[in-house]
Design a protein around this nucleic acid. Structure first.
Length: 337
DNA sequence: AACCAGAGCAACCGCCCCAAA
DNA sequence: GTTTGGGGCGGTTGCTCTGGT
């Protein structure tokens, strides 16, 4: 079955970008890990907001009144209403918005529709190879923190990236070990071997939320660099050049260490150019409509972290990774090497 | 032509965080 | 210090479409 992509903008959105809806970098590192059966003391007390006790299990109340509210796919008319309203008034209060706009939707649904689909700076269409590579690399660094990954892919939403990951990239990565086993044993430089060993040691302990969920990729990275793995898996499929250079190994280690670092350090390291990738925060900064798809027209990003217009691990980015490595080494008591 | 399986993706759900009251 | 409301996030669902049989 061939790939199915929808390339058309669902709705001609002739509006300027309202106040930024981007969330920026998440501030916490523990969200979303708790199962439904796990009940906190606070919840046992029945004091946690929005929850109530049913048969000794805490069940959260609906986020909004579902009675009479529409669910399911959005119609063009609804899109038009939402876009027109936000264009005119902005979205100060998502919960109040649907009522004020005359939509029979809950605020969450409106926010989701806007941020994932109607926002004028959304970039639609196939992901480029560079984008996919960036996703893979960032996922290795950040885990399933799609919003953080999306923050570094202008025009792409966390939802879209999440979908691409689950439908394309995860499958691709699963094929990598097989491809690697077919390849001849890689030659390693001394420094490369050491780095890989450090990686194995450190990756064994830190939480799964901070590393790739696909162990096979970790194993594979013990032998081959990310750059090579991607191209091998997605293009040639040959056993070409499995040599690990010192620089590539450094990249691998930098990834690994970065994943272990405290959230704040990583935020600092990557958010250096954050504001330049965000949508304008005020309407006065907004471009004309013809230019309101910066992701299409910008050509390149101007961030202080790795340059995304080229490969994340290209030589020109090695300084970034090296600096990150040095920083992390100073904060953590890493083994000498 | 009809059916089926799988892929793709929009949308929903439930949880958590944070700021304000 | 506690409660509450709003916003945001990641996981999951289920509909639609496509290609194979």
């Amino acid at each position: 079955m061939g790939p199915r992509r929808i390339n058309s903008q669902p709705f001609p959105v002739p509006l300027s970008i309202p106040a930024s809806t981007n969330s920026g970098f998440p501030s916490d590192s523990t969200r979303g890990q708790r199962g439904i059966e796990e009940v906190t003391d606070q919840e046992k007390e029945g004091t946690h907001k929005g929850t109530f006790l049913i048969q000794t299990k805490m069940v959260r109340a609906p986020c909004c009144e579902k009675m009479g509210l529409k669910k399911g796919p959005w119609t063009p008319e609804e899109d038009q209403i939402l876009v027109t309203y936000i264009q005119r008034y902005g979205h100060g209060n998502w919960r109040a918005l649907p009522k004020q706009a005359g939509l029979l939707r809950c605020g969450k649904s409106c926010r989701l529709r806007w941020t994932n689909y109607l926002r004028p700076d959304i970039k639609r269409g196939n992901f480029s190879r560079e984008e996919e590579e960036t996703i893979i690399n960032l996922h290795e660094l950040l885990g399933n923190r799609w919003s953080a990954i999306a923050a570094r892919l202008p025009g792409r939403t966390d939802n879209e990236i999440k979908n691409v990951w689950h439908t394309h990239l995860k499958k691709r990565l699963k094929q990598i070990p097989a491809a690697a086993s077919e390849a001849k044993a890689p030659r390693r430089t001394e420094i490369g071997v050491e780095f890989c060993e450090v990686r194995r040691e450190t990756s064994a302990d830190f939480p799964t939320t901070h590393r790739s969920s696909d162990n096979s990729r970790d194993q594979y990275y013990g032998a081959v660099s990310p750059q090579q793995s991607f191209s091998d898996a997605s293009f040639s499929g040959t056993d070409s050049a499995s040599t690990v250079t010192a620089e590539n190994s450094c990249s691998v280690l930098a990834e690994n260490i970065a994943a272990e670092l405290d959230e704040s350090l990583w935020s600092e390291a990557l958010s250096a150019g954050e504001d330049k990738t965000q949508a304008p925060s005020t309407s006065s900064e907004l471009p004309e409509y013809d230019h309101q798809f910066p992701a299409y027209s910008a050509g390149s990003l101007q961030v202080q972290g790795p340059s995304y217009e080229h490969d994340l691990y290209s030589d020109e980015n090695m300084d970034f990774w090296y600096n990150l490595l040095v920083q992390s080494s100073e904060l953590m008591e890493l083994p000498e090497f």
